[in-house]
Amino acid sequence: MASPAVDDYLKTIYHHTEWQDDRITPSQLAAELGLAPSSVTEMVQKLAAQGLVTHRPYGPVSLSAEGERRAAAIIRRHRLIETWLVREFGYAWDEVHDEAEVLEHAISDRLLEGIDDRLGRPRFDPHGDAIPDAAGHVHRESFVVLGSAPAGHVGRVLRVSDRDPELLRAVESAGVAVGAVVTVTDASTLRLVTDDPAGAVDVALPAAAGQAVWLSA
């Protein structure tokens, strides 16, 4: 069942529990993929038969050990390609997702290894998402989502979700980048203080950033 469609299912299941613990339900999976629930149910049954997921009727879906390995491998490809496009070709971080979706199925393992070596074996992509190593292992720090961080919380920006290109552009325009040290000054309006050479700068982010920006705990 090696196919882009299968990989998309496995990636979506992997992504769902990457930053929280609740397993994905078939209806959530259908919504994420933009597919009819009946189509998703049929595919989940096929994936279970292949030993890639575990699932019981009407229950949530989890990756098996083999499904996790395969999902990590395709995510590794995607995130290395995103990093490559930003560093080597000058793509903005809101432009790389769709390109990587195409290229992740096209490049050889040899080229992927060359990209990883050239980039210095990065651990994170431009959005702060962890890049699995060749064995599928990742390292993540303890984190708090911006909207749940109390006023006065100090941390580094670990990740900005790449789901909304417009939000990515707004965050970038505000001068907030992955790795920046920030202080939450008003959690209700999502205002941050960032460090720059001119001193602390008070910036405001869109309300949607509350569920799209991850800070170190």
Score class of each variant (00 low, 15 high):
residue 144 V to T: 15
residue 172 E to Q: 09
residue 108 S to R: 12
residue 121 R to V: 03
residue 143 F to R: 15
residue 112 L to N: 05
residue 158 L to V: 11
residue 90 G to F: 03
residue 83 T to E: 11
residue 115 I to N: 04
residue 117 D to R: 15
residue 166 E to A: 09
residue 89 F to V: 07
residue 175 G to Q: 06
residue 111 L to C: 09
residue 171 V to Q: 00
residue 170 A to D: 08
residue 121 R to I: 05
residue 145 V to H: 05
residue 122 P to L: 08
residue 92 A to H: 09
residue 142 S to A: 15
residue 140 R to S: 12
residue 70 R to Q: 13
residue 126 P to H: 01
residue 158 L to T: 02
residue 101 E to D: 14
residue 163 R to C: 06
residue 132 P to G: 06
residue 166 E to L: 12
residue 133 D to T: 04
residue 79 R to W: 10
residue 92 A to P: 02
residue 106 A to P: 01
residue 104 E to W: 00
residue 129 D to C: 01
residue 101 E to I: 01
residue 84 W to Q: 09
residue 123 R to V: 08
residue 155 G to R: 03
residue 91 Y to D: 01
residue 106 A to N: 05
residue 137 H to G: 11
residue 140 R to M: 07
residue 92 A to C: 05
residue 95 E to F: 03
residue 73 A to V: 13
residue 116 D to K: 15
residue 153 H to K: 14
residue 142 S to R: 15
residue 104 E to F: 00
residue 119 L to C: 05
residue 112 L to V: 12
residue 135 A to F: 01
residue 67 G to E: 06
residue 166 E to K: 12
residue 151 A to V: 10
residue 127 H to E: 05
residue 177 A to P: 01
residue 82 E to H: 04
residue 142 S to L: 10
residue 141 E to L: 15
residue 69 R to W: 05
residue 112 L to C: 12
residue 139 H to K: 11
residue 130 A to C: 04
residue 108 S to T: 12
residue 129 D to L: 00
residue 134 A to V: 13
residue 129 D to V: 00
residue 122 P to M: 10
residue 132 P to H: 09
residue 114 G to L: 15
residue 73 A to M: 11
residue 97 H to L: 02
residue 153 H to W: 12
residue 156 R to D: 06
residue 130 A to W: 04
residue 118 R to H: 14
residue 130 A to R: 06
residue 75 I to R: 02
residue 123 R to I: 02
residue 163 R to Q: 10
residue 129 D to H: 03
residue 118 R to V: 11
residue 168 L to C: 11
residue 172 E to S: 09
residue 72 A to N: 07
residue 103 L to M: 06
residue 147 G to V: 13
residue 146 L to N: 03
residue 95 E to N: 02
residue 93 W to Y: 09
residue 78 H to T: 07
residue 85 L to M: 08
residue 78 H to Y: 05
residue 123 R to A: 13
residue 96 V to N: 04
residue 131 I to V: 08
residue 106 A to E: 14
residue 110 R to I: 07
residue 146 L to W: 01
residue 145 V to I: 13
